[in-house]
Write a protein that binds this DNA or RNA. Structure first.
Lengths: 360, 360
DNA sequence: CGGCTCGGCCAAATCGTTTCGACCACATCT
DNA sequence: AGATGTGGTCGAAACGATTTGGCCGAGCCG
């Protein structure tokens, strides 16, 4: 057994030992092309004798021009992307499909807006057959530009569409509208909003004005903001700096705090993600408010949140795993030379225990 | 700009256009070796004209014998590995170090015990310079065996040590003992235990006997079980089928249920992970028990659990991110030809709000 | 019995880059 | 002036596999 990678036997060595040509030995492993089982056995025997365990992927890759690797660009630093159950679920579905097609997932930290280095070196020069921008792309995304220059095909996720690029999306605007309409149909009129960051920096946090909302650049946020306003105008909008429970809690503590007269207190909150909504539920509990009697709360994503027990969040469910699966299929289609498509997946509001009729 | 990968210009083309040899053109890009700035500029100009954006990584890889990729083998299916905040944090630290050294992370679904296919094809044949078994290895791990045959160096995480293989670990046994000792020092004597799965299948769930405990095969579990028993014998041991909140909740509902006479009810629980412990806190709340007055709960890992608010879990903190960092450094060291080491990181019990003195 | 087909094997070209050694011109030292 | 560098460039040989086209012999059909 070879100690290090340097003294690994090559196919040529195996062929020599088996008394056949290199091409025949290759055939014995790949299985393509006609070969006597006797010959194959001789090659395989020679291989085991020499400790040769299959062809070196590097050589194969160079020849075939493919490396079997799909780069997955995380939209933010990995610490955040991974803490977000949403991307986790998507990644899960994606890996399933890619695994079936013997494609590997290369994790690529996305561009970090505050960083000086605009581009991860992996984006610029790692070997990959396709890249997936799992968190959506900005209109002038540097990753997208770099991958385009390199000639790496891309699959996108989210609102942004580009000619010749497959996109997997949901109707964020309609989903948000459905959530808010659910609340208005229950009789709520004073509805607060907890929104995702309006820009990629995520530096701001707190109540925001209409002016700032009009300048929002993150496409997902923009769509969900618009969906809310398709139904009714929020009484207050609170911008979170990221989609974590603690931010939702902080927002709701402020929105529902005791300094707000009960008569003016929002009777419902729509949070743009389940994490934020869950934070709001926790905040309401801490403030001694009953959910949903005193305040109804709706989220977006449809995560399974066992730790919110005994509450079950009312939420706009999106098929996260299916999203990943669809992206995987888009990757496979791209490699097969199919025409890129825009796939829109359905969302569905599912009632939990955190919404009920407005009092009075 | 080239439309597809097939008609991408090569270094030879660029060299020809610039009127220099291929080797000189290579020098112009790599920067290694002497070259006139004038010549380099000519090459670079020719490259931009042709839309050549740096050397093809595949060719470079074949030549250098390295592909700049580290395979990260997830111990279970990715859906689970990613749901577990523990591996996420470790992965985060790992990616940071590897990123600094321009190494990419290739995600590899681990062996799925219930599956017929014993080995992921990526383990068997993906190109990688090193593999990291992030969830530790079994004594007879098929991944480990396959990687060994292929000559891929390995970095391990956890209790299992192997000659010539770098390992990053914590002292699980001592950590568990510290947690339980904390409870006994507070006067607790009836202490229940919620344990991680005893075997890799994770099919069993419920109260377990001493006989089954003696047959535990997962090293981490074994170590934490032993740590408990270094201090005191648990009054009851409940095996969870995975490290999720809902399993901890289920366990605690059973352990603390109203059918248990208050005089015999455990006054404290040590759960082998924070997720399980958090589930226990939630269960206690649902049962109307006060934490910590009626029941003290200790976890293991030291996760930040904002959704457990207002409680803060008492827990044995392990440096998760540092674990990833150490594994990254082990990878880099391995590639640099350094001697493999076993690194043991410290753990520390940090008191939250979920433990207090036993009553009476 | 001759021509044709076809299965099984091989030689050689190819993928795109890096790197080693050779080479040349020019400057420097003795 | 001749010997000794030396900076800049080039040719050619790896790196390890796949794949195309060709060759040879055996079987089949007419």
């Amino acid at each position: 057994m070879p100690r290090s990678a340097s003294d690994r036997p090559t196919l040529a060595l195996v062929a020599q030992r088996a008394g056949v040509s290199v091409s025949t030995a290759s055939l014995a492993f790949s299985g393509a092309g006609p070969i006597t089982s006797e010959t194959r056995d001789r090659v395989l025997a020679a291989a085991t004798e020499l400790g040769y365990h299959g062809p070196n992927p590097l050589g194969r890759q160079l020849r075939s021009g493919r490396c079997g690797i799909v780069g997955v660009v995380l939209g933010d630093n990995p610490g955040r992307a991974f803490r977000d159950p949403v991307s986790i679920r998507v990644l899960d579905g994606l890996m399933e499909v890619l695994g079936e097609h013997r494609l590997g997932v290369l994790l690529i930290p996305g561009n970090q807006p505050q960083s000086i280095a605009p581009l991860d070196p992996l984006v610029a020069s790692a070997a990959m057959d396709v890249a997936v921008l799992i968190w959506g792309a900005l209109p002038d995304d540097p990753n997208l530009a770099a991958l385009g220059r390199r000639g790496v095909p891309v699959v996108l996720c989210g609102e942004q569409t580009l000619p010749g690029v497959p996109v997997v999306r949901i109707d964020d605007r309609a989903g948000a509208a459905e959530a808010v309409r659910h609340l208005t149909e229950l009789g709520h009129t004073r509805i607060a909003e907890i929104t995702l960051p309006l820009d990629v920096w995520g530096a701001h946090s707190g109540v925001v004005t209409a002016a700032r909302i009009a300048e929002a650049t993150v496409m997902v946020t923009v769509a969900r903001l618009a969906g809310f306003r398709d139904v009714i105008e929020p009484v207050i909008t609170w911008e979170a700096s990221a989609s974590f429970v603690e931010h939702g809690r902080e927002a709701a503590l402020s929105i529902l705090g005791e300094w707000v007269p009960a008569s003016q207190r929002p009777t419902a909150i729509f949070a743009q993600t389940d994490q934020l909504a869950a934070g709001a539920v926790i905040a309401a509990r801490e403030l001694g408010l009953r959910v949903p009697e005193d305040v109804s709360i709706v989220g977006f994503d449809g995560l399974d949140l066992p730790w919110l027990s005994p509450d079950v969040l009312t939420s706009v469910h999106q098929p996260l795993r299916a999203k990943g699966v669809a992206m995987g299929q888009a990757v496979v289609g791209l490699l097969a030379g199919e025409e890129p498509q825009v796939v829109t997946l359905p969302t569905q509001l599912i009632e939990g225990t955190t919404t009920t009729k407005a009092e009075g």
